[in-house]
Amino acid sequence: MPLIRSTFRELPSYLWSGWGAICSLLLLMAAWQLVSEHYGSLVLAQPLETFASFKQLWNDQTLPEALIITGRRALSGLFLALALGTGLGLLAGVSLTASMMSRPLVTVLLGMPPIAWLVLAMLWFGASDGTPIFTVFVATFPMVFIGALQGARTVDNQLYEMVQALHLPKRMILTELYLPHVFSYLFPAWVAALGMSWKIVVMAELLANQDGVGASLAVARSHLDSAASMAWICAIVLLLLGIEYLFLEPIKRQVERWRVTEA
């Protein structure tokens, strides 16, 4: 609870610091305008055309509906990966044998390109929800697994001796030493997995599904509708930026306050 309170207390100053970010985004927009004026609207729609298309998609409910479908798929796959990856990773971290055995397997999983999984998923699940969910799961699972494994393996032996010398009971050793330490590895892995899941789900939908943001993007492309394509891309990026800067970053600042070194 104090975590949530202090997050809200620091929110205004955090938002105020966003002006710099907005400035650089506006510069990007200006560059976009220049490029589209040079090459013409068919190649790259102008920002204003894009926003008009965005507004229209929003008003006729296409955009929100697609976002909900895509979000549901991304989150389902992500939650599966978080639950299984965290659980199995911790278990593997506790035993030396298990961590030695699982490390090469996870390296193989990490090295496998998501598009390869997508091909397999399309064979197994067809055009159903299963394809994007499975692809998201399989792409984010190893990241979470490795985070949990390293968290469980790297508890500082010196600190462990210290809590033993202070005669901390078993339950307190878990809550005061193991959990905070493991969490400091897990949280960054969870955040990275969330970002990854959003990109993967759009790719999977684009190739495999009939609905959702990815599929709509594919439709816009096939109509050679540059404005709509850019509108969909903007929606994807905006949502990701929103999640990252309005939700994750403030939490990260609070949770990792102890880690920040004064520059």
């Binding site: 210290m162 010398a165 400091s184 880690r259």
Partner: peptide, 14 residues
């Protein structure tokens, strides 16, 4: 009985 070690050994997150 209480012990002190060569390093302070403080929990970094507290």
């Amino acid at each position: 009985t209480a012990s002190m070690f060569q390093q302070p050994r403080l929990l970094p997150w507290k």
